[in-house]
């Protein structure tokens, strides 16, 4: 049973690190043609240059700053030019932990723009292409905070719940056109970000709260995303699938 993305063009946002990068690696290994976004201009240039010198011609990194509407608009215009996009993984996201009484409208806008509005805008461009092709697979990367919550996470939880709501509605609207839309909600994942923003002691404390006793590796999340986007999935749609080592069960 093979997962193969040959002849599939795949858009993955926030793909230079963390879960997004693991998803990109996973698709690349399975033969996909990739459009990958990242925020840092120098990094994107470097990645494109490196791929060119290595003879890798099926990956295109595109710089886009999703906190900047002009940058988003320019990215969307670029996206319109692609003839076909079969798979879209909305992975880019931000978080700022703040108690509700300390949040500002700016916090609300920043988080909801990046976590919700940009996926909406991307799907506004990519969705019609998929409907026209009669084929599409969309995975929106939400979070366990779309399912449960903690103090300080009102903005993030709101944005991720909304993303799941968007997921379900698009799934129902597009099911008969063979465009499947799902959300994947990872638990705590051992990304570069997690490693740098937590002390060793904090990481151990976190591990102890997870039933399987460890954080997820980004590749473990990526494999589920890959399955849902593959031709092995032809009937799962409108789901928010939690992959968290049992965390939300406790």
């Amino acid at each position: 049973m093979q997962i193969n993305f040959t002849n599939k063009t795949v858009l993955i946002t926030g793909a230079t690190r963390g879960i997004g990068k693991a998803v990109a690696d996973c698709f690349f290994e399975s033969g996909a043609t990739l459009i990958l976004t990242g925020t840092q201009k120098e990094e994107i240039e470097l990645l494109n240059k490196r791929n060119k010198s290595n003879g890798v011609n099926n990956i295109e990194y595109v710089q886009a700053d999703f906190s900047n509407q002009e940058s988003v608009d320019s990215f969307l215009n670029q996206l319109k030019l692609y003839e076909q996009i079969e798979i879209c993984v909305n992975n880019a996201g931000v978080n700022r932990v703040n108690n509700f009484t300390d949040t500002s409208t700016d916090d609300f806008d920043w988080i909801h723009n990046i976590n919700l509005k940009v996926p909406y805008q991307i799907l506004s461009v990519v969705g019609p292409k998929m409907l026209q092709q009669g084929y599409g697979r969309i995975v929106n990367v939400a979070s366990i905070w779309s399912w449960i919550t903690r103090p300080g996470r009102s903005m993030y939880t709101s944005s991720k719940n909304a993303l799941v709501g968007l997921t379900k509605t698009l799934a129902v609207e597009w099911a008969s056109r063979n465009v499947l839309v799902n959300a994947v909600s990872p638990g705590f994942t051992l990304t570069e970000l997690t490693k740098t923003t937590n002390t060793k002691e904090q990481l151990i404390e976190l591990q102890n709260k997870i039933p399987v006793g460890r954080l997820a590796e980004p590749i473990e999340i990526a494999k589920l995303v890959a399955f849902l986007c593959s031709d092995l999935n032809t009937y799962i749609t409108g789901q928010n699938i939690i992959i968290d080592g049992g965390f939300t069960n406790v």
Partner: peptide
């Protein structure tokens, strides 16, 4: 297909979950 995926080495972190495969039936 999905049952087999969940039981394969490609699932190493999902546990305790209930996953619905229903063509969108319960999403509506």
């Amino acid at each position: 297909n999905f049952a087999v995926f969940l039981c394969s080495e490609y699932n190493s972190y999902m546990t305790g979950q209930t996953i619905v495969v229903d063509g969108g039936f319960t999403a509506r």
